[in-house]
């Protein structure tokens, strides 16, 4: 018993001494309405902070908001307890982060998908249109019918930017291909409506589409199922969803929110956390396309060469992918 006690003390001291190298942080995260298990955006952040937790043993405080007023409340509660860095998930938390961060200038805040211009806020935004551009090329090269589809979640500018980048990729690969776009809905339920996703997919298949890119959170699950049932193809989004239906999933457009969340904690832990705007595009590996054992057979060498060439061109600036959000229009 005594030995056990000693061992425990020793290991505690050992742990403390190794932690002393790093900064002692008490991180927190405020998930948004989708909830941390939305199989998409929020879950990406969840994966990132969980990875930090398993690597360092530092646990984090979390909250999932259920209405508009709770965002500010939750972030302020985290701040009142001196937690830092505090991650706000999603653009909807931008105003709340802005308000609380100016009240607590000594704490660190990270906002994902929005820009807050304060000296203690790290804003992480993604060039989703660049990643969508690449999967658009892959879609165009895989289509046999000359028609490809896009199904967005809730009809907001960001989701239109996904669709706009995708359409540009399709048109670059083959200008004759038609892109059919649908939005799932106009309320947040559009993020989690697999039934409607499947219905829209069947509609697009009937119109001759043979591959659909879904940027719709949980709704995408229905799109992929419908594609599998109809023997067509689909493209996943946010995290690598290739494994869901191997043979049906052509690829996934990766948006590495997990990396963004993990990096924020990790940097604070190592003492080199920096405020400012972090724009993550193809160049920064913040977005990309997924190639693994589940879809390797569907991606030909020609497709791979073409998409990698396009990727290099976007990074070098030779190709400019238009961002819908820059002028609220998609002129291609």
């Amino acid at each position: 018993m005594k030995l056990l006690h000693k061992l425990a003390t020793a290991s505690t001291i050992l742990m403390l001494s190794s932690a002393a190298l790093a900064v002692d942080i008490k991180p927190a995260v405020v998930f948004d309405m989708g909830g941390k298990f939305d199989k998409s955006f929020n879950q990406g952040v969840y994966d990132g902070v969980e990875r930090f937790k398993t690597e360092t043993g530092i646990s984090y405080r979390e909250f999932e908001v259920t209405n508009e007023a709770q965002r500010e409340q939750a972030i302020r509660k985290m701040a009142q307890r001196g937690l830092s860095p505090i991650i706000g998930v999603g653009f909807a938390q931008g105003p709340a982060i802005e308000k609380v961060a100016s009240e607590y200038p000594n704490l660190k805040f990270t906002i994902i998908d929005s820009v807050v211009d304060l000296p203690n806020v790290q804003s992480v935004v993604f060039k989703e249109h660049e990643g969508s551009f690449l999967v658009g090329i892959l879609a165009a090269m895989s289509s046999k019918t000359g028609k490809v589809g896009y199904i967005g979640g809730m009809d907001i500018p960001m989701i239109r930017a996904f669709g706009c980048g995708y359409a540009q990729g399709v048109k670059m690969a083959d200008p004759s291909i038609e892109v059919i776009q649908n939005m799932t809905g106009t309320t947040p339920t559009a993020w989690n409506d697999p039934g409607r996703g499947a219905e829209l997919s069947r509609g697009q298949f009937d119109r001759g589409v043979d591959i659909i890119y879904a940027a719709a959170g949980g709704t995408g699950v229905g799109v992929y199922q419908a594609a599998k049932d109809a023997g067509k193809m689909a493209i996943g989004v946010d995290s690598n969803q290739n494994h869901i239906h191997p043979g049906t999933m052509l690829t996934s457009m990766l948006k590495r929110v997990d990396v963004a969340a993990y990096n924020s904690y990790k940097a604070a832990y190592e003492g080199n956390w920096k405020a400012g705007i972090h724009v993550l595009g193809l160049k920064e590996d913040g977005v990309g396309w997924a190639l693994d054992e589940h879809n390797a057979s569907m991606i030909t060498d020609a497709m791979k060469a073409k998409v990698e060439q396009a990727r290099a061109d976007v990074i070098s600036g030779k190709i400019k992918v238009h961002d819908y959000r820059s002028n609220n229009a998609c002129d291609i």
Binding site: F91, P95, V125, D155, I156, P157, T186, S326, N328
Partner: peptide, 22 residues
């Protein structure tokens, strides 16, 4: 009502250069 609001917020009333419809 929900559809009207989304249409107005996304297409008409949105503050330009802004991610979220407000």
């Amino acid at each position: 009502a929900s559809a009207i609001m989304v249409y107005l917020m996304v297409n008409v009333l949105i503050m330009p250069g802004q991610q979220s419809p407000q």
